[in-house]
Design a protein around this nucleic acid. Structure first.
Length: 385
DNA sequence: GCTTAAACGTTGGCCACACTAGGGT
DNA sequence: CAACCCTAGTGTGGCCAACGTTTAA
């Protein structure tokens, strides 16, 4: 699909600089021009005429920032090149289960009023623009609410936002193209959730499904028709004729990057803030929402900076609020059955005491009946004696 | 049109406990 | 190395206070 980056250009200093201005970090790769462009140059070059505006572009890999993205990891909401995708998603079981889809090429004018008029055009979000964010993603029409959310995510990370828009639209339009060794770390469950449109956000799916594949003794989760999913996946793989290789190598850097969204939450705050502070150009992220200079990608990022960015991004993603998901049905059952006092969980003895006092003594005296379970599901604990 | 208060809606914290992971013995 | 014990951490739902927003006077 996309050519693997061959031009390492000497020592990898992470973000590749724009081929045009040579100053800003590139955000998109133009196939027609075989050029890496920053948002501003992309806007300028591809808004010049209609022909140019038709150039297909793809986001630059969010991990290495040096290669065209080939896959969109929905769980991480990250666009990744084949190499990074393989590295990241082969690192651990959780990462393997991330749902990824091929990156849709971007065409049309990403910037400027003309672009805004074109509802159906795939919008970009590299957003080195005055307001910091302009584009939106997808060949699909995006609702205004989604645009608003997209805007906030654009501030955080253009590429990410591109992905995050998909959250609300369930999936990107292009199909899935995994093959070869992909099953080793392909999240078929998430794929199922996505295709079923059961959940609008893959992060939810991740929350919902990522852990339970590991067999827990007590907690249970909603079962998934895995075999069926596998067949669907294989069909798609075949139809698309895609190949996907998964290098088994795992670099130390990738070890951290490949953490699942769930794992990101355990990163100590201090670590990330420390790293952020040490970095002169404030990395994109939550703080950048208030910095007034969104989408300014530091020309060069150290591995630590890069890692900090990824971690912070994931933490923010983790904090996004969507519909409540239940990861452990058994815990839900326990919670529902648990005695409460004013909505709070209460100690059983305490509740029994409370019940005895509040209900049994008074109501029993009035009605002559003894059993007063005020919560039907936990009647056992509320039986008056 | 502006101000104030009331009504309404949203958000996050609290609580107990079953359960798991991980370290120690 | 396996088995066991202990501790810390996680997740769960309903209620409510603290806000923020909207509406009416």
């Amino acid at each position: 699909m996309l050519k693997q980056e061959s031009d390492s250009g000497g020592g990898n200093k992470w973000a590749r600089v724009c081929d045009t201005c040579r100053s800003a970090a590139c955000t998109v790769y133009c196939r027609a021009d075989s050029a890496y462009l920053c948002g501003g140059c992309d806007a300028r070059v591809h808004a010049a005429n209609r022909v140019a505006s038709r150039h297909e572009r793809v986001w630059v890999c969010e991990a290495c920032e040096r290669s065209p993205a080939a896959f969109l990891c929905k769980a991480d909401a990250a666009s990744l090149c084949t190499a990074c995708d393989a590295d990241i998603h082969s690192a651990n079981p959780l990462a393997r289960r991330h749902q990824r889809v091929p990156i849709l090429p971007i065409s049309g004018c990403l910037y400027g009023p003309s672009a805004a008029d074109r509802g159906g055009v795939v919008m970009g979000s590299t957003g080195v623009t005055d307001d910091g964010f302009m584009g939106q993603e997808g060949a699909e029409t995006i609702g205004e609410e989604d645009e608003e959310e997209a805007a906030s995510w654009l501030l955080l990370n253009p590429v990410n936002n591109n992905n995050n828009n998909n959250h609300h639209h369930h999936h990107q339009t292009n199909g899935f193209l995994f093959g070869g060794e992909v099953d080793e770390y392909l999240n078929l469950v998430e794929y199922n959730s996505c295709t079923d449109n059961q959940f609008s956000d893959q992060y939810q799916q991740q929350q919902h499904y990522s852990v339970p594949r590991k067999s827990y003794g007590g907690d249970s989760v909603v079962p998934v028709a895995k075999d069926q999913l596998l067949q669907q996946q294989q069909q798609l793989n075949f139809q698309l004729g895609m190949e996907y290789e998964s290098p088994k190598t795992a670099y130390s850097y990738n070890e951290s990057v490949s953490m699942s969204s769930l794992d990101a939450g355990i990163v100590p705050e201090s670590t990330m803030s420390d790293i952020s502070i040490s970095h002169s150009g404030s990395p994109r992220g939550t703080m950048d929402l208030f910095s007034g200079t969104p989408n300014q990608i530091p020309p060069q990022l150290s591995p630590m900076d890069r890692e900090a960015r990824v971690l912070r991004y994931r933490e923010k993603k983790k904090n996004r609020k969507f519909e409540k998901t239940i990861r452990y049905a058994s815990r839900k059952a326990y919670a529902e059955a648990r005695p409460r006092i004013k909505g709070r969980f209460a100690k059983r003895a305490e509740v029994e005491l409370e019940v005895d006092r509040m209900f049994c003594s008074s109501i029993t005296a009035e009605t002559g009946y003894g059993i007063v379970p005020f919560h039907s599901k936990c009647s056992d604990t509320f039986r008056c004696r």
